[in-house]
């Protein structure tokens, strides 16, 4: 869908049901709702910053302020893997993303590789993590470090720098990511609520030589996280009418809806909440006459 519309790039969003093969472990359902946005045709740090900021802003608008983002980097991970000549890429990805020192031992045999990878798994923080890795002997990270510094600058402009941290063990399962990757989480929700990253390489698979980055959030988790948020919306006003006053009640409901108030209209059967349209208009709970006030 994206590839067919994205020839010249653009900004897209979707709220769709997704169908994916998931092996029947703990999550047996194969269809789920996902909401996401993609920025196609623009690369670089500005675009990555925009995507992350948009994800956080969307959550904030949904009443879920304070979401946190952990950033990882596929290039940094790859450079480390290549430098230490580790061949079991998938095994290593799994060991690092589960922070399992035990599994790491079976994959990285060199002492220095162990030290570097353990550091990547343990520490979370700012761009200085990369300086430390350089100090530990990982080569060629200068560009990545500048990139992260700039990214934090961009995020600062959006007002989200303090929500974001680098955790180099963040490696998304999807193999198409080739730049930064990130996961979004909220206190009290046990699974990451969403995530995303840069996937320029995937667009090439569709014959498009364009940059792309995006994010998605799980609608199910979003709903769960939003439980208990009232969104300031009050229940609809119940308007009842006495015999012969239906037309007047419907007219009143129309006028109130026009002002943005939601209401329902039905025949009066002795209810004690809402308002009654009779010769005059009465608040059923207090018994006060409201004529002229609505």
């Amino acid at each position: 869908m994206l590839a067919s519309r994205a020839c010249s790039g653009g900004r897209f969003f979707y709220i769709e049901n997704c169908i994916r093969f998931l092996s029947p472990k703990a999550l047996p359902q194969r269809e789920f709702w996902q909401a996401g946005a993609e920025l196609v045709g623009e690369g670089g740090v500005e675009a990555d910053g925009e995507v992350i900021a948009l994800a956080l802003e969307c959550l904030e608008r949904a009443g879920l302020a304070g979401a946190k983002v952990d950033l990882g980097s596929i290039p940094v991970f790859r450079k480390t893997v290549e430098q230490f000549k580790i061949t079991n890429y998938e095994g290593l990805r799994r060991a690092v993303s589960t922070k399992s020192i035990g599994d790491l031992r079976g994959i990285a045999t060199e002492e220095r590789a162990m030290e570097v990878l353990a550091y990547m798994m343990e520490e979370r923080g700012g761009p200085d993590l990369l300086a430390k890795l350089t100090e530990m002997g990982v080569r060629g990270l200068e560009e990545d470090m500048r990139y992260f510094e700039e990214l934090f600058d961009v995020l600062k402009s959006y007002g989200y720098a303090s929500n974001v941290r680098i955790d180099l063990s963040t490696l998304r399962e999807m193999k198409y990511y080739n730049g930064i990757v990130f996961e979004i989480f909220l206190e009290g929700i046990g699974l990451p609520i969403g995530g995303g990253g840069r996937y320029d390489a995937m667009m090439k698979e569709f014959g498009l030589d364009v940059s792309a980055a995006g994010f998605a959030v799980s609608v199910d988790l979003l709903v769960k996280a939003a439980e208990g948020i009232s969104y300031g919306r009050s229940p609809p006003l119940q308007i009842y009418y006495a015999e012969g006053y239906r037309e007047r009640a419907i007219g009143l409901a129309r006028r109130l809806r026009g002002k943005g108030m939601s209401c329902t209209v039905s025949r009066y059967r002795g209810e004690r909440e809402g308002i009654l349209v009779d010769r005059t208009i009465i608040d059923l709970r207090s018994g006060k006459v409201l004529e002229g006030q609505l």
Partner: peptide, 13 residues
């Protein structure tokens, strides 16, 4: 092993 939820590790470090 001592195992840990991924989100809890970050939010209640």
């Amino acid at each position: 092993k001592l195992i840990c939820n991924k989100v809890a590790y970050k939010t209640r470090h």
